[in-house]
Simulated scan of single mutants.
Amino acid sequence: MGKPDSQRCGGRTWVNAKQLVTSFFEPPGTIYLNEILKAYPTRLKYDLAVYIGHRILHSDEGLKSVLSVGNQNTWDDSNAHQSSSALNSQDILQAWRDFESSFFAGALLCPKVPFRQLLDRSGYEIDVHKRVGVSPSVAMRRMTVVSPYPHWHYFDAYGPGKLKAVYRGNGIPLPWGNMRMVNDPCQHWAVFRRLSEPQNGSSAQISILNVGDEPRIYCCESINMTDPAGNNRVLCAGIDLNPAIDAQGGNALDIASELKRSCVEGGGSVTIPRHIKKDLQTVAKILNINWVERGIEGDARLICSRGAVCPRKPSCYEGCQDGANQTLGDIV
Rank of each mutant, 00 (worst) to 15 (best):
G2F: 06
G2P: 14
P4K: 05
S6C: 13
Q7S: 15
Q7M: 09
Q7G: 11
C9W: 15
R12Y: 14
N16S: 11
K18Y: 14
K18F: 14
L20M: 06
T22A: 01
S23Y: 05
S23R: 08
F24S: 03
F25A: 01
G29K: 11
I31W: 03
I36D: 00
P41D: 13
K45H: 09
L48N: 03
I52T: 14
G53Q: 06
H54A: 10
R55D: 03
D60G: 01
G62I: 01
G62K: 02
K64M: 07
N71D: 01
Q72F: 04
Q72P: 02
T74H: 03
T74W: 12
T74V: 08
W75F: 11
S78I: 14
S83G: 06
S84G: 06
A86I: 00
D91E: 06
I92N: 02
L93N: 01
L93S: 11
Q94F: 02
Q94C: 00
R97V: 01
E100L: 07
S102I: 01
L108E: 00
C110T: 05
P111C: 12
P111N: 07
R116I: 04
Q117Y: 07
Q117V: 03
R121C: 07
G123D: 08
E125V: 10
D127H: 14
K130H: 14
V132E: 00
P136M: 09
V138G: 00
A139S: 13
V145I: 08
V145D: 01
V146N: 09
Y149A: 06
H151C: 02
Y154Q: 02
Y158A: 14
K162I: 13
L163A: 05
A165S: 12
G171C: 11
P173F: 13
P173A: 12
N178S: 15
N178Q: 09
N178C: 10
V182P: 04
N183L: 02
H188R: 14
A190T: 10
F192T: 11
F192P: 00
P198H: 13
P198D: 10
G212T: 05
G212A: 04
P215H: 10
P215K: 00
I217R: 09
Y218W: 07
Y218G: 02
S222Y: 05
N224M: 03
M225Q: 01
D227A: 06
R233P: 02
V234C: 12
V234R: 10
I239S: 05
D240Q: 12
D240G: 13
A247P: 08
Q248T: 03
G250L: 08
A252W: 11
I255Y: 10
A256Y: 02
S257D: 06
K260Q: 13
R261D: 12
C263P: 06
C263S: 09
V264F: 07
G268W: 01
I272M: 00
R274S: 15
K278R: 15
A284I: 08
L287R: 06
G295H: 06
A300S: 13
L302R: 12
C304R: 05
R306S: 12
R306A: 04
G307S: 08
S315V: 04
C316K: 03
C320S: 10
